[in-house]
Amino acid sequence: MLDVGCGPGRLVAELAARGRAVLGIDVSAAAVDHTVRMGGQALRRSVFEPLPGEGRWDTVLLMDGNIGIGGDPRALLDRVAGLLRPGGLLIAETAPVDIDERAHVRVVGRMDTRGTGDPFPWARLGTPALLRYARGWTRAGQWTADGRRFAALRTRSSRTASSSAEPPKRTAVISSQRAGNTSAGRPVPDR
């Protein structure tokens, strides 16, 4: 299982404790370090960079509204489809209302001494909007739990001829050595 935008790693650590093979990725070094301290495996990496196991993951998680990563839901869905094995499952948490918006946002932590982070593109989608972008995916379910909304989508059960002819992607190596700069000294906010 691959948790994209794993943040402080609560899901990665919980799934690992239950014996599941799981990897978290996040662009924040502090988030990755926290995930590892909690007992999970994580890489400091963008979902749009080369990742281990591309095309072989059974499940990808986009929790906490991470369907908004990059501000382009169609591009993110295409990328996730390339990470999953044929017939693989995407589980995404969506906004509680039918919304489809784009913005540049900033992450502000409670102890952030600079006040704000650098702006980055983000999207906010409700389940109906996600399903509109999910052309080529099969609906696998949708539900609400504790006031949070989720949608599950499956990739096609086989790759198209054009995608199977693509050259293999570079593989990334999981390393326990990371750069000491943890998000410019900013703490990772609780998620």
Rank of each mutant, 00 (worst) to 15 (best):
L43V: 07
P168L: 08
G136Y: 07
D98C: 09
A134L: 04
T171P: 00
W143H: 11
A165L: 05
F150N: 10
G185D: 01
A31M: 06
I91M: 06
G68N: 09
Q41P: 07
G82R: 03
R85I: 00
M63G: 07
T94G: 07
A29I: 01
L76K: 06
A17Y: 12
G65S: 11
A129S: 10
I174P: 04
P8F: 10
D100C: 06
G53W: 02
R79E: 10
I25F: 05
P119W: 03
I174S: 08
T127M: 12
G87L: 01
S176I: 05
D33R: 15
H104F: 15
S163A: 12
C6Y: 09
V105W: 07
R191Q: 10
M63L: 14
T160M: 06
A134M: 13
V47N: 06
G40W: 14
R44P: 03
G126P: 08
D33W: 00
E54P: 13
A16W: 02
G55E: 02
G39Q: 00
V105P: 05
V27C: 08
R170A: 15
R45L: 09
S164W: 01
S175L: 10
D98L: 02
A95P: 02
S46D: 15
D58S: 15
F150A: 12
R170K: 15
D72T: 13
E166H: 15
A13F: 11
Q177H: 09
G55F: 04
F120W: 03
N66L: 06
F48C: 02
Y133R: 05
A95F: 11
W57I: 08
R178M: 02
R135S: 10
A75L: 11
Q177E: 15
R186L: 01
V4R: 09
S176D: 15
E93P: 08
D146P: 12
L43Y: 01
G65I: 09
A75S: 11
G39V: 06
D72V: 05
A30M: 03
S158N: 13
R56W: 02
S158G: 01
A134C: 11
V105M: 07
A151I: 14
D78L: 01
G9W: 09
E54I: 12
L15N: 06
S183I: 03
S162N: 04
T144G: 10
N66G: 07
L62S: 11
V105L: 09
S175F: 05
R139Y: 12
A165F: 03
L2I: 14
L131H: 03
L89K: 03
R132K: 02
E14S: 15
A17R: 13
R139P: 10
